[in-house]
Computed example of a mutant assay.
Amino acid sequence: MSKRDTIAVDVPNAKALSLHERILQDLEANIVSGRWPPGHRIPYEHELTDQYQCSRMTVNKAVTQLMRSGLVQRRRKSGTYVTFPKGQSAVLEIQDIPLEVEARGQAYRYELLGRSEGEATEADRRALPVERGDTVLKLQSRHFAGNRPFCLEDRMINLAAVPDASGEAFDTVAPGHWLLEQVPWSAAENRIRAIAANVATAKLLDIKAGDPCLVIERRTWSGDSHITHVLLTYPGDYHELVAQFTPAR
C-alpha cells in the first residue's frame, strides 16, 4: 500500500465505534476530504485486513456500504475505485456532450467507431421519418470522461436536411457537437428508458453484461425537416436525468 493509500484515522471517535464502522468512517473521510480523488483505487481488502488486523468479512462489510452509498465502484479484476460525480442532463434540453464532460472537471475524448452512408431502409424510416429514397448518414461513436467511457452514440442524420454532413469525416469532432453548431433545431423529442447491457454494449462501456444502462432516444426537427435520430447509452451508475417543473394549473 502506497503512502498516499495510508488511511487517515479519526482517533477521537474510534473508541465509540465498532470496528467495521471505524473502517467505514476512515474510508469515507479519505474520499470526502479529496485525499482520494475520483478514479483513485482504494486499498485492496487484504491490505485493509492487514492494516486493521481484522477479518476479511469486516472489511467487506465496510466496503459494501461505501458501494451502496455510491462513493466507490468495484471493477472486475481491477479493484475498487472512488466514483466520479454522476453526469446530469436536463430532460428538456439537448446537452453538448463535450461541454457536459468538461463541466465535470474531466478530460473529454471522442472516438468514431463506424461511419456509413446509404439509402434509408424501412427500419431507418421508422426511427427517422424521411422520404423513401432519401440518403442517411449513420455514425457510431464513443465518448470518454477521463479514461472511462462516458456514453455510446448511435446517430442517423438526414442528408436531405443536412447535406453538409456528407462531407464531414466526424473522425475528430462529435456529430452532436457539430450539429448543434451547424443546424438550428426547432423541436425535439426525448424518450428515456433503462436497459440491461448486452455483451457488445458492455464491452464498449467497460461494464459487465447485464449491468443497467440509461438510454436516451432523441429526434430533432428544423421546421418541417427531420434532422437526426440518436441513441445515447450511458452506464447506469454514471448518469442521471434532472427535470424541474411547476404545479399544473
Rank of each mutant, 00 (worst) to 15 (best):
K203F: 08
P43G: 00
S18R: 15
R218W: 15
Y234P: 03
L92S: 14
G223E: 05
I195G: 01
A145F: 05
E28G: 01
A145G: 15
L48H: 00
G114I: 03
A169K: 08
V101G: 04
E168D: 12
A197L: 12
L27H: 00
G118P: 00
R148D: 14
E117K: 10
A62C: 05
F84S: 09
Y238F: 14
E111P: 00
E100P: 00
E111Q: 15
P163M: 00
W178K: 00
W185C: 07
E45H: 07
K15W: 13
H20T: 13
E168I: 12
L214S: 15
D124E: 02
I216D: 06
K77R: 06
Y52R: 01
L179Q: 11
P129I: 02
V82D: 08
V136P: 02
K15F: 11
Q106T: 04
G133P: 03
D206L: 09
D224V: 07
D5L: 00
V242A: 07
L24Y: 11
E189T: 10
G39L: 02
H143K: 04
Q95L: 10
V230I: 15
H226S: 14
N13L: 14
N147G: 10
V215G: 10
R126K: 15
D164F: 09
F150V: 01
R191V: 04
W185E: 12
M67H: 11
V199L: 07
G39R: 06
A165L: 07
C54R: 00
I31F: 05
D224S: 13
S116L: 08
R68W: 03
L24W: 03
E131G: 03
D237R: 13
A14H: 07
K138E: 06
L19F: 02
T135F: 08
V11N: 03
V242C: 09
L48P: 04
L27F: 03
G79Q: 02
G105C: 03
H20R: 11
I7C: 01
I227F: 02
V11S: 02
I192M: 11
S78P: 01
Q53P: 03
I195L: 15
T201N: 09
A248V: 09
L24R: 02
I207P: 12
A90E: 12
D10T: 11
N60R: 14
F245I: 06
T201L: 14
E217L: 10
A62M: 02
A145R: 11
D237K: 05
R191C: 04
R104F: 06
A188Y: 05
K138F: 01
L180H: 11
S78Y: 05
T201P: 07
V82Y: 13
E240C: 13
R74Q: 15
K203T: 10
G146K: 05
V32I: 10
